[in-house]
Design a protein around this nucleic acid. Structure first.
Lengths: 202, 202
DNA sequence: GCCAAATTTAATCAAATGATTAAACTACTT
DNA sequence: AAGTAGTTTAATCATTTGATTAAATTTGGC
């Protein structure tokens, strides 16, 4: 009974499902997504999906885990880097976060709505408190300006970075921007948010 | 055949459904909401819901219409007031928008996700282009600072106002804030966003 | 009190949907 | 070539869900 290892295309099959799930879940949300949609998007059969992942929920969990990681893994090392200045952190976050969002435009709206629609599910998944609120960055903020609550500054910072992507469907739907113009705006925005944030420090 | 007008409690019944629909739709989103949930929340029968509204979609349309109106009706008169200064508009929007959001905390996330999940449905519902992008406010912005794209400023402004409410489930879930602290933060935030926005003008 | 219209209910339908099953097929080992 | 574990498929289930129907109940005018 030599346990047969998965050949090339087996891994590929599982990955096809995950890819499809990423696309469909992110586009339509958990509740509106049918397992058949995912199977079709993957070009595979419905039963096969359950063979690999046991359930819709399971597959969703996997996708969601990835997304949340993506959303936080970028920030953590930057805000907790003890060797950089406040200004350097602001520059770094602005550039890298917008770059990441340009590659994952509907990440924030997807993650935030799923969390809202089902808060119980994400008990300890995000350690905002540990990763961000106790970060080196926050300490530097508090040192620099003792009158302003760091939470306020951070909400503005992340808000300025993330909100355009959340409002993107509205902006496009109402013809304010095209895909191309949006990208240019966001690229330009890296410098703007950094500049604005630095102004807001004092 | 004197057509019997709806007595007191009929109007009340229709309103009960709308109230329930507001609650459930806003909490769970369109796809995750079952018509039975709404009926139960209203303390009424399922068939009655279809008697009044013909369909789930219909009822949703009504609720959504209200929500979008709420989201835009506040801004329009302020940004298009030809008699106020840029600074006055900024103050007015900050205060009144945050007040409105404090009373409707999950309005933004609800509206924005439903639009994203179903952009076709909202063809012309939001005239962001007409109401905001061609407003007196934007003209004043462009006059004041010819180097910065007004869209960038507006995205930051609305982002700073709205984002905390979008991130609220995460903030609460991770124990960064309680309901009470959140309200205080948002109250304090009225002045902060106004101050920051004015700084960003130059 | 009685009638007609409006309202409410319980029962039921048809379609959609997540999941399972049993059989067919593939690829690798010997 | 045969056997075996792993993979894929078509068919089917049971439940959920939006909607309908027909009967019961209530309401207001006479």
């Amino acid at each position: 009974m030599t346990k047969q290892e998965k050949p090339e295309n087996n891994l590929s099959t599982e990955e096809k499902f995950k890819d499809a799930a990423r696309v469909v879940f992110t586009k339509k949300g958990y509740a509106a997504t049918k397992t058949r949609d995912i199977a079709e998007e993957a070009g595979l059969n419905l039963a096969l999906l359950n063979y690999y992942f046991r359930s819709k929920e399971n597959l969703f969990e996997i996708v969601m885990q990835e997304k949340i990681l993506l959303l936080f893994s970028l920030i953590s090392p930057i805000v907790n880097d003890g060797s950089t200045s406040l200004e350097q952190k602001i520059d770094g976050i602005s550039v890298r976060y917008i770059d990441m969002l340009l590659q994952n435009p509907d990440l924030p709206l997807f993650v935030l709505s799923e969390i809202k629609n089902n808060p119980e599910r994400f008990g300890k998944n995000f350690q905002v408190d540990n990763i961000i609120m106790r970060s080196h960055f926050v300490k530097q903020l508090a040192e620099r300006n003792k009158t302003i609550n760091p939470v306020q500054l951070i909400l503005s910072f992340i808000g300025m970075l993330v909100f355009p992507f959340i409002a993107k469907p509205v902006l496009q739907g109402s013809g304010v921007v095209t895909e191309e113009i949006f990208s240019k705006l966001m690229d330009e925005r890296k410098q703007l948010t950094a500049r604005w944030m630095k102004m807001m420090l004092d």
